[in-house]
Design a protein around this nucleic acid. Structure first.
Length: 594
RNA sequence: GGGGGUGUAGCUCAGUUGGUUAGAGCGAUCGCCUGUCACGCGAUAGGUCGAGGGUUCGAGUCCCUUCACUCCCGCCA
């Protein structure tokens, strides 16, 4: 108890009847009956209805006070009559009869209402974030975030992981995302980089012999935003363990995810044991390495159908001959869907930059036939073969895309989502987790046609080191894995390569000579040559986990002070100009603005 | 860097085929109202229709440019 309050705004009930109390909070809502005034007083914890009538000398002043002003109320608790009980409030059986009040913080006219379920332009929400955060839904999201982080920290502690901080000012790394750079005053012309992740540090922690590490780690990447990706900064549950295999990591993370999601959501887990899907299979069946497994639609490869004599769909046949792939999505029992359903999808695909989606529906008159604009090109036998490959039956429809493998994967992945949404196939009350495993170590850069790391250069290639065929680098798989939930990539991780010679070898394949590796990764490579344990880890994204738990589609809804899409903080005006003096001290000259 | 959407009162939105003085709800201000909990009733104020240019007798509406916000592609080892 202090001078501001004896109770919070979600505490009083019938048991407090007759007590003299003090409450402080924001004026959430006023209902003015002329000679009788109701005030809903709000704080972090809840609402309490307060009441005052004309006989009180404070009435006139209170009647005029702005919503969202902060006031202190001295009053007594009275029981409400049966008809006036509000069962939606914890404090709904009582109200506070106001004796006197005091303004603690007055409020100007609001740029946006607080007590409302309306949605507002992002610009105004971000500029007045401190007001936006008073609103119920987002206020609760931020509290949820706090609780989730606290729960995770507790779980990790119980599993005997040690929490360490790693540097925020570190060195720029050549791989990966763009770095945020910080000029060094003491080392003119040189720059720190903010860590994209504590990747090297957590490995060095293992080399230092600490065995099991975690951190709720800030990560900084100067890349463009998406709905599920904050520009600039985000948080990962960074984990690293020594003397482990892939399965040991899965075990820890799977249990952690199950505990977190059970604790904070009433939605059901679709799988108790998270399915493992190889990268290759994911790309084939879902067109993506972050498939939403709630979505029952699957992709099938029909390239070979277009080499048949009895299929006369010449456009596709020509493309297939030139190396294109044909893949399809089957929709069940859609024969009675209106023509517009099919045409809209074709139109939509074209809008996405694809060449469109060909389609037909399998029907039976006397014999099997394909109904739709391209149906006539398929013989009955070819239809049977298609049905065999795709498990399609009469009444189902088939949507085709043809093109380069990457392009087909991409458009069909998007089409899977789009069709499932249109047909309402996704159960929003489920969480579908899965592991994506067996990532390739390298991939071909489409622009330069050179081999590059497809994921993390520090990953351990699969198989016995002596048996790895370095002549076929694109065939090398890595102990590299992602965890995905409802189509959102929650994290990726890997068993690390702790063998320096092997590291040099892999880097050389990606075009880095020994000198460059020594230069760019000196801390790392040096450390590995002084007795490094086998180790591995993972780093689930905290923001995205909370986003899923809060049932939000946008990461700003679970971020207290987010930046806008252009990486600006509209409340704090960041980024901002700096003084000439500051620039001079840092040895920087600006070339001028655009 | 590219593509889509949005931009009208403090807030959320409507505004027909280009046609008189640009509307509504909430909020604000003023008045009435003693049991509301999205209280109710009445009145008043509040507009560079994001900005600039163009077409037209006439533009919120059509065209061009541009800005802001947002979604997507690229990017994100």
């Amino acid at each position: 108890m202090n001078k501001y309050r004896t109770h919070n705004c979600n505490q009083l009930n019938k048991g407090n009847k007759g007590e003299n109390i003090i409450l402080s909070g924001w004026i959430n809502k006023k209902r003015d009956h002329g000679n009788l005034l109701f005030i809903d007083l709000r704080d972090n914890y809840g609402l309490t209805q307060c009441i005052i009538d004309k006989s009180n000398s404070s009435f006139n002043e209170l009647e005029k006070i702005q919503l969202e002003s902060v006031i202190k109320i001295i009053g007594n608790v009275i029981e409400r009559s049966n008809e006036t009980i509000n069962s939606e409030l914890y404090t709904g059986e009582i109200e506070v009869n106001i004796i006197s009040f005091e303004i603690l913080g007055s409020c100007r006219e609001l740029p946006m209402p607080i007590f409302s379920d309306q949605e507002y332009a992002e610009e105004i929400r971000l500029k007045y974030r401190f007001l936006d955060l008073r609103r119920k839904k987002i206020h609760e999201n931020i509290i949820l975030r706090s609780k989730v982080i606290s729960f995770i920290r507790n779980e990790m502690n119980n599993l005997e992981f040690l929490e360490f901080q790693t540097p925020i000012l570190t060195s720029s790394s050549p791989e990966g995302a763009r770095d945020f750079l910080v000029p060094s005053r003491l080392n003119p012309g040189k720059f720190y980089a903010l860590p994209q992740a504590p990747q090297q540090f957590k490995q060095l922690i293992m080399v230092s012999g600490f065995d099991k590490y975690f951190q709720i780690a800030p990560c900084f990447r100067d890349e463009d935003a998406r709905a599920d990706r904050s520009p600039g900064e985000f948080y990962q549950l960074d984990i690293e363990m020594s003397f482990v295999e892939q399965e040991n990591i899965f075990d820890v993370v799977e249990k952690l995810m199950i505990n977190v999601f059970k604790e904070f959501s009433s939605k059901k887990l679709l799988y108790k044991k998270f399915p493992r899907i190889s990268y290759e299979e994911a790309m084939l069946k879902y067109g993506s390495d972050k498939p939403d497994l709630r979505n029952p639609l699957l992709i099938y490869d029909l390239t070979n159908i277009f080499t048949r004599e009895d299929v006369s769909f010449d456009i596709f046949k020509k493309l297939v001959k030139a190396g294109s792939k044909v893949r399809c999505i089957v929709t069940k029992n859609t024969k009675d869907k209106p023509r517009s359903f099919f045409d809209n999808l074709d139109k939509w695909a074209k809008e996405q930059g694809a060449s469109g989606l060909a389609y037909f529906t399998i029907e039976r008159d006397k014999q099997l036939s394909a109904k739709g604009p391209v149906g006539k090109f398929f013989s009955e036998d070819s239809l049977k073969e298609i049905m065999k490959i795709t498990s399609a039956v009469e009444g189902d429809s088939i949507f085709f895309a043809c093109g380069k493998r990457n392009d087909v994967e991409k458009i069909l992945s998007q089409a899977r989502e789009k069709i499932a949404k249109d047909l309402d196939l996704i159960d929003e009350n489920k969480f579908a987790f899965c592991w994506i495993v067996d990532y390739p170590m390298f991939e071909l850069d489409e622009l330069t046609n050179k081999i590059k790391f497809s994921h993390n250069p520090f990953s351990m290639p699969q198989g016995n080191i002596k048996d790895i065929d370095f002549e076929k680098p694109l065939d090398i798989k890595a102990y590299q894995y992602d965890i995905v939930c409802n189509g959102i990539e929650l994290s990726s991780g890997a068993i690390r390569n702790h063998v320096p010679e092997l590291m040099y070898k892999l880097f050389s394949i990606a075009g880095y000579d020994k000198k460059k590796v020594d230069e760019k990764f000196s801390g790392m490579i040096n450390a590995l040559s002084y007795g490094a344990p086998p180790h591995g880890g993972i780093a689930p994204g905290i923001d995205r986990i909370v986003m899923l738990l809060a049932n939000e589609k946008n990461i700003r809804e679970v971020t207290m002070f987010p930046m806008n899409q252009n990486a600006q903080d509209l409340m704090m005006n960041a980024p901002s100009d700096v003084s000439d003096h500051q620039l001079k001290e840092l040895g920087l000259i600006l070339k001028g603005k655009k």
